[in-house]
């Protein structure tokens, strides 16, 4: 049985923002939220359901030739949208690789980027730093599924398969809160533990993600997402890479490589990108970029295997675009 909470289903966004009192939580699809409440990871006085707010659902053309996705759009809807499959294949593959069919039918894109860490200490009965305790138990504990980049004080990996693609596509996250609307680059939406180990996103009190805007991509832009996991079907990424590259006359112009499963935020690797600019995509340049991508990785006691996996994932993703 879940612990007690009030439930409110506002009809408008402004009412939803007003209902988000300090210990209230947004309920989107509930797939992540209800698990956390059941396991006592955090509590909620009130759940504010967004399910009656129609404007948050659906995929529409945006200004400047981009595409806007409402926060309450399910992962299945994103995965089966032909515009997204054609123009933003990295995202399409990311959401297709996430969770299971049932969870994609229910889980939303907004909830996917706001989902809480899957670290087993955080989800388990440990009063870890992220839950107001003293330390990160993963640093010296069972850390085979933890991060190799950007941990410093808390070593979880960001669980989303959509987020790396959103960062690689330079998407914007639209937010509405008590003081109005704002937009944040996907890149700046996620918060590193060294900056604030109590939260994963820049959302402030009462703020709601209302949608995501994918900018138009220049002609000759290609993308993909490669996810490595222990099982062929639903499982979180052990390592992965979203790649988006614009190729003109056979040579790489702009390229973005963003890693999943290895850092507390979608982890961009500018060094690897730099290796590729001006080059042809070949087995050689892909291998060189993949080596640059893992440069600086700091594995914990039990997860050095991720470094090789990551190198392979980046290489394979790049070769897919060649």
């Amino acid at each position: 049985m879940l612990p007690n909470f009030n439930y409110v289903r506002p009809a408008t966004l402004s009412d939803a923002v007003r209902q988000l009192t300090p210990n209230a939580r947004v309920h989107a699809g509930g797939t992540d939220l209800l698990g956390c409440l059941r396991d006592g990871v955090f509590t909620a006085d009130t759940l504010v359901s967004l399910s009656a707010i129609e404007e948050l659902r659906g995929i529409r053309p945006a200004l400047d030739g981009g595409v806007a996705i409402g926060a309450m759009t399910t992962l299945t809807t994103v995965a089966s949208d032909s515009r997204i499959a054609e123009r933003y294949p990295a995202l399409s593959r990311g959401v297709t690789a996430a969770a299971s069919p049932q969870l994609r039918n229910q889980g939303t894109i907004g909830g996917n980027i706001c989902q809480r860490p899957r670290c087993w200490y955080y989800r388990g009965e440990f009063q870890c730093a992220r839950k107001g305790g003293e330390k990160c138990y993963a640093a010296e504990g069972e850390n085979q599924f933890h991060c190799v980049f950007g941990g410093e004080v808390c070593f979880y990996v960001h669980p989303s398969d959509a987020a790396p693609a959103l960062v690689a596509l330079e998407a914007m996250v639209r937010i509405v809160g008590p003081s109005g609307a704002r937009s944040v680059a996907a890149d700046a939406f996620f918060v590193l533990p060294s900056k604030d180990y109590t939260r994963e996103t820049v959302l402030g009190p009462g703020e709601i993600v209302t949608g995501i805007v994918l900018p138009a991509q220049p002609r000759g832009t290609y993308g993909t997402y490669r996810k490595v996991r222990a099982r062929g079907a639903w499982d979180f990424a052990l390592a992965g890479a979203a790649v988006v590259a614009t190729i003109a006359e056979g040579r790489v112009g702009r390229v973005r490589i963003v890693l999943s499963g290895v850092a507390p935020i979608p982890w961009r690797v500018p060094e690897a990108e730099r290796v590729l600019v001006g080059q042809r995509l070949s087995a050689k340049s892909a291998a060189k970029a993949a080596a640059a991508a893992v440069e600086g990785a700091e594995p914990l006691a039990q997860n050095a295997y991720k470094v090789d996996m990551l190198r392979g994932a980046v290489e394979e993703a790049l070769l897919e675009l060649a």
Binding site: H27, G30, T31, S49, N105
Partner: peptide, 18 residues
Amino acid sequence: TVLIDGVPRYACTTLAVE
């Protein structure tokens, strides 16, 4: 698993009020 509007979903992660 049940169908909601014809689509498979998990009844354990769906609130009845939803």
